[in-house]
């Protein structure tokens, strides 16, 4: 018999195992590939376009002044998303619990 715990949390376990494997592989590769820069694929794409001799014909209206400001804005984006997800899952949970007879 498989313990109940493994049935109840089957998907969580698969997810955590994969994330740990992902992190371990990343740490290994980080040491193995000393020349890797771990830069964004979007920036590599832009660099590959520039390598063909192309120059962008228009600039963004506004560019974050530093990578710190940029990561702040990305964090705000994640925060907004996580807030909405947490809000509704909490709301569902509360609704379900209060529907049960005390």
């Amino acid at each position: 018999m498989i313990p109940r715990f493994f049935i109840k949390y089957k998907l969580e376990i698969i997810f955590i195992v994969f994330i740990v494997a992902f992190a371990a592989l990343f740490l290994y590769e980080q040491n193995a590939q000393t020349q890797a820069k771990w830069e964004g694929s979007d920036d590599q794409g832009s660099a590959a376009i520039e390598a063909t001799g192309y120059t962008p014909w228009i600039q963004p209206l506004w560019t974050p002044p530093s990578s710190e400001v940029e990561s702040l804005l990305f964090s705000i984006q994640s925060g907004l998303g996580a807030f909405v997800i947490g809000y509704f899952f909490g709301f569902y949970r509360g609704k379900r619990d209060s529907a049960k007879p005390a």
Binding site: F26, Q44, F74, L80, V84, I85, F88
Partner: peptide, 28 residues
């Protein structure tokens, strides 16, 4: 509507996470 908001929020959340891609050595 609430699930629509959650679905949209997942696009918001996941598309903001730049993750390293092992083996390749870049992020996306």
């Amino acid at each position: 509507l609430s699930l629509l908001a959650v679905s949209g929020a997942f696009i918001f959340l996941l598309s903001s996470l730049k993750m390293p891609s092992p083996v390749v050595g870049s992020c996306s």
